[in-house]
Nucleic acid binder design. Structure first.
Lengths: 376, 376
DNA sequence: CCAGCTTCATTCGAAATCGAAGATAGCGGC
DNA sequence: GCCGCTATCTTCGATTTCGAATGAAGCTGG
């Protein structure tokens, strides 16, 4: 099931190769799963010189999951089928600063609303995946020590939502989800990937050996690395000259407001850059240079196949160019040889798609599969 | 076999738990392996409230491997049994700068000499694991772009040794091996570990999710990260103010020689520190501070359970103290919470033990096991 | 000292898995 | 259009693995 879900096992023969099981055993299992309504055949694939494979896919009527990306000022939400295909998706308003009680209740309402609009009320809801703009302890699904989320510390988002909606819930940091989303949807076969999200805040998700690297739960924090900047700035963490205090969307907006611009959101920054306002472009390019300065040692150290740039600021071409330049200038040839530096293939959907992928993994590894098999 | 070799499966019941197989199946397999002379029973373990487990271990007469740690100025070599226990070990002279032809031939002679002295000539030699002080392409077992190993670029060490000695050969970078050695021998159960080796050069090995992280082959390079230092220094890589140009044993020795000290090796540096020579102590402490400065963002990013300090300079207490101080001062609480910073548990043997572990993994995963089983 | 509990290891019939051979099906060259 | 090649999928007997029950051995506490 997992292999088919990840799009890696498209036929019985391929499943046999990937799983290491005998073709005969795979056929038997697949037969069972088809009878239980979990898998279905989906026409024939291209021949590789012999008989054409009979493509397999997860049955889209078997159930759905809801994936949500909670941003600082909005919520992006979608319904996905078991294969991770987006059935319906939209963006809704909502400030994360409204606090945990309000936001969890809002998520519940949004979820049912989204299911309604997706016209899948007759299918079982198997799980909910949520991305949050702050550190999440994967063990407890609690938010820990968030910098831009007052009132959220130690709040058990996952448990609350599971109670409210009576479904399996997965909660994860948004940068981590972006990494997962890009890895699954944009870079098949890539083993090691870094995804840097520069929006209101700055975060980084890490895929090591094809799996999300969480470390002790806080991995990927790059926002409080000291940078060499022209002007001093104090960060919310108490230290001075953190990357986040200089190069985040929030920091840039703050700077521009002192100069008389009316900017509130990162998106407005990008608009100003696209309008060709020189002062803003210079500022954004500077932010990119600082981000590159921080990323250089990390790229040398981690030596990824792909570096994905996402989040609001990645839509500004000067920002991306400055990051690229900084990395190619100072990284070792051995580290940049074959390194891809790209903006998010799935754009603003990356986090949401990642949330869907992870909750689908959980659902497909859960008892639900066995129970469904047994009940038919 | 692998589980027993790693010391994780000490009894049939434990193997069943760890492997997920049924106890009965495990018993059958173990019986076979014992009959083939690969495993043996080793008395009884401590009771956990019920019947005492019958301890299992790899049969020490089944074969041996040779593990070598090629340093800049010496070679450390040992004979290990299948369980990774060191049967015999010693340090021999030899400059890596003598070039690849000389060194490979020397390694061959040393290996046979070591086997002789270990008195295991009657046991089959199953593999040779070699650590080199430079980057190794794991796919081809070639040295790539080494900085302190003139003449070694693209030299196929592994292939040459395999030809010369007609055994399976594994070649890996020394810092990577240190990480493996410490992980297997000092930190059981630890998932994520960084091992920093500061000797003549500077390197870092990474264990992610319990496995050696190689990235695209060059992961763990921290030596060419720019640092903020008092005096300028140009590195062999062409950039200025690399960590290696300021804090490596070679760099410190160079500085001290300009000040009239007669120092050639890192070991002499440590002697001077232990003798309480203030000028040297200050220099070494400064090197530690710079290393800490570079490691701080990496610890935030990777968020390991353990940071191991090894290599010659780690024997100097002021160096270690300075690294610790720098990391605790500037790292996020979330990253240092529960972080262990320790000097190598296995000391100067770490790389050699890691080389043994990796070649043993290869041997135990190879056809040799099946062939031995079939032939009895 | 013995009953009750726990853990470790083996036995043996039931069930799952394998693997070799065969059936199915398309490609490509002559 | 036919034959050989390749690849996919299925069939079916042989083998492996499972799992529940059983035996083995030791701890605990009255």
């Amino acid at each position: 099931m997992r292999l088919v879900a990840r799009g890696r096992g498209g036929s019985r023969a391929e499943l046999a190769r990937l799983s290491g099981m005998a073709p005969s055993s795979v056929s038997l299992r697949v037969e069972e799963l088809i009878e239980a309504g979990l898998l279905r055949e989906d026409g024939e694939g291209a021949s590789r010189g012999g008989r054409r494979p009979r493509r397999l896919r997860l049955h889209e009527e078997a159930g759905v999951v809801v994936a949500a990306d909670v941003g600082t000022h909005h919520v992006r939400m979608s319904v996905m089928d078991l294969a991770g295909r987006v059935v319906y998706s939209h963006e809704l308003p909502g400030e994360v600063a409204d606090g945990p009680e309000v936001v969890t209740e809002r998520l519940r309402q949004y979820a049912y609303m989204t299911l309604d609009q997706a016209e899948v009320k007759h299918l079982p809801l198997l799980g909910l995946g949520v991305g949050m703009p702050g550190p999440v302890d994967p063990a407890t699904t609690r938010i820990v020590a968030p910098s831009r989320m007052p009132g959220w510390n130690e709040y058990p988002v996952g448990e609350r939502l599971a109670e409210l909606m009576d479904v399996r819930v997965m909660v994860e940091n948004d940068a981590n989800l972006m990494a997962v989303g890009e890895h699954r949807n944009g870079w098949p076969g890539c083993e090691n990937l870094m995804a840097v999200k520069v929006g209101t805040g700055i975060g980084c998700g890490i895929i090591a050996s094809g799996r999300l690297h969480r470390g002790r739960g806080a991995a990927g924090d790059i926002s409080h690395v000291p940078v060499i900047a022209d002007t001093p700035a104090t960060c919310s963490c108490g230290h001075s000259d953190c990357l986040e205090a200089h190069a985040s969307g929030a920091a840039l907006c703050r700077t521009l407001r002192t100069r008389g611009f009316e900017v509130e959101y990162s998106r407005q920054l990008v608009d100003l850059v696209n309008d060709g306002v020189p002062e803003v472009t210079t500022l954004v390019r500077g932010a990119g240079r600082l981000a590159g300065q921080v990323l250089t040692p990390l790229v040398n150290f981690f030596n990824p196949d792909v570096l994905v740039l996402g989040g609001g600021l990645s839509a500004a071409e000067p920002f991306v160019a400055a990051v690229r330049a900084a990395i190619y200038e100072r990284c070792l040839p051995l580290a940049t040889r074959g390194l891809e530096i790209a903006t998010a293939v799935t754009g603003r959907d990356a986090c949401m798609l990642g949330a869907g992928s992870l909750i689908l993994d959980e659902v497909l590894a859960s008892d639900w599969v066995d129970e469904t098999l047994a009940s038919r």
